[in-house]
Design a protein around this nucleic acid. Structure first.
Length: 257
DNA sequence: ATGGTAGAGCATCTA
């Protein structure tokens, strides 16, 4: 089973590119973030014609997450599971695809450590942690994937000195990510490539950062051991970040046996 | 040290 995550930064602006990519890469399950669409504008028919069932949780202008699947799509939960303080934003959707529970998330950016949005980011991560216990369990086949807006370690940052005091690398958010790992998840890209350096999934549009190799690895695919045991390959698809009007993120792909 | 780009929607906000 081939599973991918991609922050498309507006599905309206990126649909043609996403369609071409689906045909080329042939993933079985795709998690999309930042669709920036309301549910009634989501192009479910375009994906259906390519063989995908889909579920979308959107709000319009900002955010918006979706799961596409060729291997079944059931037990959809939009937003955090009942019992958790609901998120006003459309940032998480959960479904079961081919016997794997899949959580697709768009973690808040945080903006700056002193910004209230950063506290929202930390509380959001705490609620994601609770969510996992309600929709799955560490002994199950579970994938938690998406744009985490956290670089797990300094090896995932092109120049850690430039990020001193910034979001994406701060200790409190890394601790929240570590708590998810401790709960029973593995960073599948890092499992496959423990020593790879300068592999990123996001580059700022500005100042030619992509072409200069100035990026962060913030798009993650986390899996329980039942999933990690099936890991065959993992890669960042940098080709999808090239050419005319790309997203600022590249897809991350994992192949499971 | 600052600002550089892109997408939302039409003045800025978000990233």
């Amino acid at each position: 089973m081939r599973l991918a995550t991609w922050n498309v930064n507006s599905l309206r602006a990126r649909l043609e590119r996403v369609e071409e990519w689906l045909v080329e890469v042939q993933p079985d399950v795709v998690c999309l973030q930042e669709t920036k669409l309301a549910d009634d504008a989501f192009p479910a028919l375009a994906f259906q014609s390519l063989g995908y069932e889909s579920a979308h949780f959107g709000q319009g202008q900002w955010n918006g997450v979706a799961i596409l699947s060729k291997v079944g799509l059931t037990d959809v939960v939009a937003n955090f599971a009942p019992g958790i303080d609901p998120d006003p934003d459309a940032r998480v959707i959960t479904a079961t695809c081919g016997e794997v529970r899949v959580v697709c998330c768009y973690v808040p950016n945080g903006r700056a450590l002193a910004d209230p949005h950063y506290d929202y980011k930390l509380s959001w991560l705490d609620r994601l942690h609770q969510h996992l216990g309600l929709v799955s369990a560490p002994g199950d086949a579970l994938v938690v994937t998406g744009d985490f807006n956290i670089a797990p370690t300094d090896a995932d940052v092109y120049d850690p000195r430039k990020f001193a005091g910034a979001t994406h690398v701060s200790e409190p958010e890394r601790q929240r990510l570590a708590a998810l790992i401790d709960w029973g998840l593995v960073d599948l890209f890092r499992l496959q490539h423990p020593d790879s350096e300068r592999v990123y999934s996001w580059w700022d549009y500005r100042a030619g950062d992509f072409h200069q190799g100035r990026g962060l690895r913030i798009d993650l695919v986390l899996g329980t051991s039942a999933v990690a045991d099936r890991l065959e390959w993992s890669v960042v698809d940098r080709n999808a970040r090239k050419g005319k009007s790309p997203s600022d993120h590249a897809p991350v792909i994992v192949d499971l046996l």
